[in-house]
Simulated scan of single mutants.
Amino acid sequence: MLVHSKRKARYSVQMPMTSLIDIVFMLLIYFLLTTNFMVDEGIKIKLPQAKAAAPQTEEVITVFVDAQGRAYINEEEVSMARLFDRLKEKIGAREDELVVVRADRSVMLNKAVKVMDIAKAAGAGRLCLATEKEL
């Protein structure tokens, strides 16, 4: 009499996906949270808010105007009398140079307009008043 042993059902080996999915979600949450904490360096000002604000991507000359009306270029305070000369140096011969004015929301409109007027007189081809997106 022939005795055949019963064949055991083969179990397939599966990789545990639960822990991998957990790790992927943790990485996703980490990157989402850290991208919100990237800060724009410069003078501490509170920008005015606008609904149609768009991010600026090209290299520009940025003039900061703080709450007291003082002007800064690259974190260096510049008097209104010297602002024209400093902007003229930075703009050079480029006719289509963009100058962004980042004025504090509490500054008098007259100061921000005066800085924009000086930038235009120094040869800026385009002017932009920076805002932050309203949430």
Rank of each mutant, 00 (worst) to 15 (best):
I45D: 07
P48E: 10
M38L: 07
V24D: 11
V24K: 05
P48A: 12
M26S: 08
K51D: 15
P48L: 03
F31M: 09
A54F: 05
K51H: 15
L27C: 15
K44P: 08
M38K: 01
A54Y: 02
N36Y: 02
A53C: 15
Y30N: 03
L28E: 07
T35K: 10
I29A: 15
T35P: 00
D40L: 11
L28F: 14
N36M: 10
P48G: 09
T35F: 06
F37W: 02
G42K: 01
A52N: 15
L33G: 13
M26I: 11
P48Q: 12
I43F: 04
L33M: 03
L33S: 07
P55Y: 00
N36H: 01
F31K: 09
K44M: 07
L47D: 06
T34S: 11
Y30I: 04
I45L: 07
L28A: 15
I29W: 13
N36S: 07
T34I: 07
V39F: 01
L47N: 06
L27R: 01
A52H: 12
M38N: 02
V39M: 06
L33T: 05
L27N: 05
T35I: 08
Y30K: 04
L47V: 10
N36R: 02
A50F: 13
Q49S: 14
Y30R: 00
